[in-house]
Design a protein around this nucleic acid. Structure first.
Lengths: 185, 185
DNA sequence: GTTAAAATCGAGTGCTCACTCGAACTTTGT
DNA sequence: ACAAAGTTCGAGTGAGCACTCGATTTTAAC
């Protein structure tokens, strides 16, 4: 599982071979295919495995943590596991190609994430904490887009790009400060 | 050239074969290799060809057009040529994999684009048209990231995503209105 | 018209790929 | 102890891959 994750992250789905994965585990390619009937199923297994161990949201849902803090914590955590980011970035784009086994997975992932952030932004808007004029739906898509895009740039130039700072900049643009009750006029 | 562009966009570099390209032009694979000594060189030729015909900036540099308008015009234009976006998105992520021939190209492309937007934002900041607190360098990287990321989502769901609107939202957040000279208190 | 250069291709070459098959070996339940 | 089930693998299979070679055809130059 870990081996397949590494191989697909470094070589992509099309570029990575079952032999590479098998070698990495010290197993024959045949034995590997005993557990995963096809390369396609191995990929889907890796994607679901990744979801199940990292979880998509925060594992301990800390109620004192704000939305922004949660995003930034996740972003900073991701910097320590570049392999995961790479797998995600490489396979996501690869899934745009014809008949890619991961396409459905990424479509659904985007849908789910957008829905989650949309709900978060809507909740903030109700509290008046979303900057006026900001559309929650487009903000959700934009936040994901910004995150994915900055990850790609970071992978190509880890020294030059500060992922968390870019996300913080964006979030502080659209999310207003916690209203201080003593400051009302 | 066009054939190779189409094939690489639809299948990626690793996934696309020289035979596919040759068939599409009605040429033998051998003849294709007469013009491009290797698959690698074909890819680089396609990337440079793409740059040379679309140009990276606006072809007629209209002085009356604002920075935002120029970006949005380009974004709307791109919606009409999904093949180009797809080529860019697929190959960019693929270039993250080991020893990919396109890696240097995309590194340089990002560097150049960031430098361009950094210069644009700096110029705006000098005129006081950049929202206070916005860092030109991070804003440049963020704009590119947002653009790339939203393109990926758009390719997976063209109906549900409004690329130009997301970019407009972001630009209007960081760029202030043209100061109206009559409104100065 | 001759000749050199450029263009085209059929037929390979050697390699890697995902996947199959059949037979061993190991484990486990009883 | 024994059989069933699970695990492992060597040895293929057929297809596709990028790329080569040698030769033939087409074009161009003088």
């Amino acid at each position: 599982m870990e081996a397949a994750h590494t191989v697909f992250a470094a070589q992509g789905y099309v570029g990575g071979s079952l032999q590479d994965v098998a070698d990495r585990v010290g197993m024959s390619q045949t034995s590997l295919l005993h557990y995963f009937p096809s390369k396609r199923e191995l990929l889907l297994a890796v994607l679901n495995w990744r979801d199940s161990i990292t979880g998509d949201g925060q594992t301990p849902p800390d109620p004192t943590e704000t939305f922004s803090e949660s995003i930034l914590r996740q972003a900073r955590f991701n910097e320590k596991i570049p392999g995961v980011i790479e797998l995600y970035a490489v396979l996501c784009a690869e899934s745009l190609t014809d008949d890619h086994p991961g396409r459905a997975y990424f479509c659904e992932r985007f849908d789910t994430l957008r829905a989650t952030y949309f709900a978060d932004f809507t909740r903030l808007a109700e509290k008046g904490r979303l900057r006026p004029g900001v559309d929650p739906a487009r903000a959700a898509a934009s936040l994901i887009a910004l995150w994915d895009g900055i990850q790609t740039q970071w992978l190509l130039d880890p020294e030059g790009i500060d992922m968390a700072a870019c996300l913080r900049d964006y979030l502080s643009l659209i999310i207003l400060e916690e209203p201080d009750e003593n400051t009302v006029a």
